[in-house]
Design a protein around this nucleic acid. Structure first.
Lengths: 171, 171
DNA sequence: CTGTGCATGTAACACGTTACATGATTGC
DNA sequence: GCAATCATGTAACGTGTTACATGCACAG
C-alpha cells in the first residue's frame, strides 16, 4: 500500500481535488492512515505524469479555483491490481507502549498518569469514531462501516483493559 | 520516540551488541515497534559520537567478536528526559483496513478471503504473544506483562469482531 | 482589515528500508 | 564443503514530514 493506491481508491468513486483528498483522509480513515499535503500534492503531479489520473481546473463561486483529478482507465486497472494483490502486514508504532514497557525505570505515579492519559485519549478517539459512524450512517457502505466497527472494537478492548489494570495495580 | 530512545532504554538495563538489540526488538516488542540492522548499526555509531553510549569489543568462544555498547551518564539522563516527556500519538498503518474500506469495488469472495486471512494472521499473532508471555513469565516485569496483555486484549477484540461479521454478513 | 477556511505547492530534512557486502564459527 | 547462525556494516533508494510560501474569498 502506498499513497498512490489510496488516492486511486478515492478517485475511483468520484473526482476530487488534492484538498478534498486530504479531507477524505481525515474524515474517513484517520484511524488507520494519514498523509499530509506535502505528500499529496507531489504525488498527484507524479500520478498525472504516469497517466493514472488527469487534471482539470475548476472555477468555484465564493472559493478559489481548484484542480480536480479524475482517474483514467490505466488508473482503474492499477487500482484493481492493488485490490486483488497481497495485503501488507499491519504496522503499529506506539510510543505509549514504549513508555509503558520501560515503566519500571520511573515511579508509579508517572506510569499511572501515562495509563490514565492513554485511556482518555482512546476514549476520545472512540467517541469521535462512534459519532462519525452515526452521523454518516446512510452515506457509508457496508465495508466502510465494518472498518469503523472494527476500530471501535479495538478501542473498546484497549480502554477496558486499561481500566482493569488501573483498578488492579493502582487501587 | 526515535530509535535512539529505544536503544537507550534497552542499554539502561544492561549492555548489548547491535545484534542483541535487534533480537530484543523481535523478542520483546515486535508488536509495537521494529527496526532493521540498517538502522540499528548506523544509529549506534551516531550515539557513540554523541557520547550517549560507549563501545567495547568483546571476544567470544565459538562465536565471532561483538561490539558491546554501554550507556553513559549522559545517555541515562537523556533517557529519563524521554521517559518523563510527552507521549507521541500512536500511528497505525493498515493495508488490511484499506483493502476492506474499498471492498465494495471487488466481489464478496475477495472480501471474505481478506477477512479470513486477517483473522488467521491475528490469531497467529495472538498465539505467539500469549506463548511468549507464558514462556518469559518470570523474566518479565509488571509493565512488560501489561504491554503484552494490552496487545492480547486488542488482538482478541479484533478476532472476535471479525468472527461476528463473518457470521453475520457471510453466512 | 483581520481571522478563518479554501487551495496549492516547494524545499529541506529526517527517517527508515532493502539489498548488498563481508566474514567468523559450528555442525552436518 | 556447505548451510546456518552469529555479527557488522554501507549505499542506494523511497517515502514522508515540517516548515515555508503564496494567494483567493468571505464574514465579522
Amino acid at each position: 500500500m502506498n499513497i498512490q493506491d489510496v488516492i486511486l481508491g478515492i478517485l475511483n468513486k468520484k473526482p476530487h481535488s488534492g484538498y478534498e483528498i486530504k479531507q477524505h483522509f481525515e474524515e474517513y480513515f484517520s484511524f488507520f492512515f494519514d498523509a499530509s499535503y506535502g505528500t499529496i500534492y507531489p504525488t498527484l503531479s507524479k500520478m498525472e505524469g504516469l497517466k493514472l489520473i488527469t487534471k482539470e481546473s475548476v472555477r468555484q463561486e465564493g472559493k478559489p479555483d481548484k484542480n480536480v483529478f479524475t482517474i483514467t482507465s490505466t488508473g482503474t486497472e492499477r487500482f484493481q491490481t492493488y485490490l486483488h494483490g497481497p495485503v501488507e502486514k499491519e504496522v503499529l508504532r506506539s510510543d505509549f507502549f514504549m513508555h509503558l514497557y520501560f515503566g519500571d525505570m520511573t515511579d508509579k505515579e508517572t506510569v499511572e498518569k501515562l495509563l490514565r492519559q492513554a485511556m482518555e485519549e482512546k476514549q476520545t478517539m472512540f467517541d469521535d469514531l462512534e459519532q462519525k459512524l452515526k452521523k454518516l450512517d446512510t452515506k457509508l457502505g457496508t465495508y466502510q462501516k465494518m472498518c469503523m466497527e472494527l476500530g471501535l472494537a479495538q478501542y473498546a478492548a484497549f480502554i477496558k483493559e486499561i481500566q482493569r489494570v488501573l483498578e488492579l495495580d493502582f487501587a
